[in-house]
Design a protein around this nucleic acid. Structure first.
Length: 600
RNA sequence: GCGCCUGUAGCUCAGUGGAUAGAGCACUGCCCUCCGGAGGCAGGGGUCGGGGGUUCGAAUCCCUCCGGGCGCGCCA
């Protein structure tokens, strides 16, 4: 196997050259970073290092900038920088450097992306469907963001394991077991077996909300559910048999929903799979003296000394209590709570996968829960606290700014949501007279890809911690910053390249002449830096923005720089650029979990 | 009450110490004898919630006030 030394991006090349200049001048190279310019009228890249270095050393920024400019000798990459304002250095790269970079990207199977220096083992916990409920719009973000992060980390060279972590072991199971018992007339009723055999997800979706609602104000019913939960976890029959049936029905549907969404997992484990570790974990916590009795439960305290908050009691008085709250490991009923399984799952993962990093892609509202679990895991030595990260995200809201609901006020099932997006995609395609001549099966495939691209791009283009407003009309639009626009641009390039092949027009060496070509190569060049930042910040939206910027810049290039109308070297150069753009666009969208149809 | 998140153009959102705050939608005006116009180019539109402070420099950091969302032990 040939090991290629990947070419550094232009910002990196300029930074290296600038660092050499700073080193020669005796200035700390920590200030030598060169980045894309925010003043394109003055240069393509800039360095603010002279200002920062001036502050640190007490020298004049202008003087440092002038000395650096005078020593600049990176021939071939850029001319010596110009100085502006109090000491900004502005760089304009040479056409040759751009051409070389474009060719390197075009020839690279990774479209110009480098790998992390030290690959790690990373486990990504995302999706998190609940066995008691079908997947709905609320599961969208966990699935889409988690899947994208998994792809991004894997692409950068890490060994990544995606785990769905089904919610199949808590009180929701106890509630369902009691509901089943009531439906058939008791746990030992003859009707149990046939009931379980005929069970569907629809039954489950009808039973669970009813049971959950009843538990709210029927204390006796709630107590029965808690007891049933404890019995299930203790391995009692027929609780276990019922649980198995419920889980099987739910899982089959959820796998289908994930498949429709184009989201996959390496491990399809759930909370129940942590069960074998719980007894041992509790003994370990006990032995370490971390477990305390508290109001009938057994807890691990995780607050540091002095971490307190005031709490109002029912009688109106306030008391000072520790924060975060202790993590409940054993409920007063003797059952496992979600904190118990989460903690045991860390132990399980540490044993089985030895991850360097654990990412939990879960709703931001659970931040405090994870803080408790992570602290407990750190204290118990299951995993270092720094290796555990909660990747929180905001909610999907309706037009009223509140979490998204259907017109009837219920939650929108994932399946229905995808169906609505497909309807919208079909209508858009027909309105644009796209795919009219396709075989029905291909038309449906295109509509599905457009629908998924609409949903995923609209979600991923927002920074994950902010909530966003769900607006299917906007998401499925072919205009502007949307998934369908990106598919359209990509397919248009495919069409162009196919036409070139028909004409036996071959790509060739790149020469960068037109301003639109310069701008395009600069966007291609920015890919690797964007990947690195998206990776560091666990922020796929940076990648979504890059894909959009690339498509948009290609459109400008396409408008200004005819490809097939040219002949010879110019045509060959532009074909290389077009090919590089398509490859990078496919890679970018692929990392977002978005598939591009062959034609549309 | 305490804590976390959040407030940027009419709308949806980027930008978290650097120069003149950006993009999409919407709006106005141009551009199809030309590779897919679902496009491109240009323009109007912002006291970056208010006030104070730190800094050569603040949407970004600190303080304070106002608005919105969420969380605060036996649900997940």
């Amino acid at each position: 196997m040939v090991i290629l030394r990947r070419m550094k991006d232009l910002a990196r090349q300029l930074s290296d050259a600038h660092a050499a200049v700073f080193a020669a001048l005796g200035i700390d190279t920590a200030y030598s970073a060169v980045t894309r310019s925010n003043r394109p009228d003055l240069g393509e890249f800039q360095s603010n290092g002279a200002l920062a270095a001036a502050r640190a050393t007490g020298r004049q920024p202008r003087e440092i900038a002038e000395a650096a400019a005078a020593r600049w000798s990176a021939t071939g990459i850029a001319a010596p920088p110009t100085i502006a304002g109090p000491g900004f250095l502005n760089f304009t790269v040479t056409a040759d450097a751009l051409a070389a970079r474009a060719e390197a990207i075009a020839a690279d199977a990774r479209a110009g992306a480098t790998l992390v220096e030290t690959p790690r083992t990373v486990i990504v916990d995302y999706g998190g469907p609940n066995v008691a409920k079908g997947m709905h719009v609320g599961h969208l973000r966990a699935s889409i963001i988690g899947d994208s992060l998994k792809r991004l980390f894997r692409f950068r060279g890490d060994d990544v394991i995606g785990d769905a972590h089904f919610g199949d072991w808590g009180l929701q199971m106890g509630l369902l077991i009691v509901a089943v018992a009531d439906a058939v007339g008791g746990l030992d009723a003859a009707g149990l077996e046939p009931f379980l055999a005929a069970l569907t997800l629809a039954d489950l979706e009808a039973m669970y909300p009813a049971a959950a609602a009843r538990a709210k104000d029927d204390a006796a019913f709630r107590q029965r559910a808690r007891e049933a939960t404890a019995a299930l976890q203790a391995g009692t029959e027929p609780h276990r048999k019922i649980w198995r049936a419920l889980r099987d029905v739910s899982l089959a549907t959820q796998k289908r929903d994930f498949a429709a969404l184009g989201v996959d997992f390496d491990l399809w484990l759930g909370e129940s799979d942590a069960e074998p570790y719980i007894r041992e974990m509790i003994a370990d916590l006990e032995q370490q003296g971390l477990l305390e009795d508290s109001e009938g439960a057994r807890v691990v305290r995780v607050a540091e000394p002095g971490e307190t908050r005031r709490k109002k009691l029912p009688d109106g008085s306030t008391i000072e209590i520790e924060t975060p709250n202790p993590l409940i490991v054993v409920s007063s009923e003797g059952s496992s709570m979600y904190g118990t399984t989460d903690l045991a799952t860390i132990l399980q993962r540490a044993r089985n996968n030895e991850p360097d990093l654990y990412l939990y892609v879960v709703d931001q509202r659970q931040a405090e829960h994870f803080e408790q679990v992570f602290r407990a895991a750190g204290r118990a030595g299951f995993a270092p606290r720094e290796a555990l990260e909660h990747i929180g995200f905001g909610t999907v809201n309706g037009a009223d700014g509140k979490p998204f609901k259907t017109r009837a006020g219920g939650v929108l099932k994932l399946q229905d949501l995808i169906g609505q997006a497909e309807d919208a995609a079909r209508a858009r395609l027909r309105a644009a007279e796209l795919g009219a001549s396709f075989p029905p099966q291909e038309f449906e495939d295109v509509a599905h890809k457009v629908a998924i691209a609409s949903i995923k791009f609209a979600d991923l283009v927002n920074y994950r911690s902010t909530s966003y407003v769900f607006d299917l009309d906007r998401f499925t639009s072919f205009e502007g910053r949307s998934g369908p626009y990106l598919l359209y641009q990509a397919v248009r390039i495919k069409s162009l390249l196919a036409k070139a092949r028909e004409q036996h027009a071959e790509p060739g060496p790149v020469s960068v002449e037109h301003a639109a070509e310069r701008a395009l190569v600069l966007v291609l060049d920015a890919f690797d830096g964007t990947l690195a930042r998206a990776y560091d910040k666990r922020a796929p939206h940076l990648l979504a923005e890059h894909a959009y910027a690339l498509a948009q810049q290609f459109s400008a290039f396409y408008e200004n720089c005819p490809v097939l109308a040219e002949r010879g070297a110019a045509r060959a150069s532009r074909l290389t650029l077009a090919g590089a753009v398509l490859a990078q666009l496919e890679t970018s969208l692929g990392l977002l979990g978005i598939e591009i149809p062959e034609r549309m």
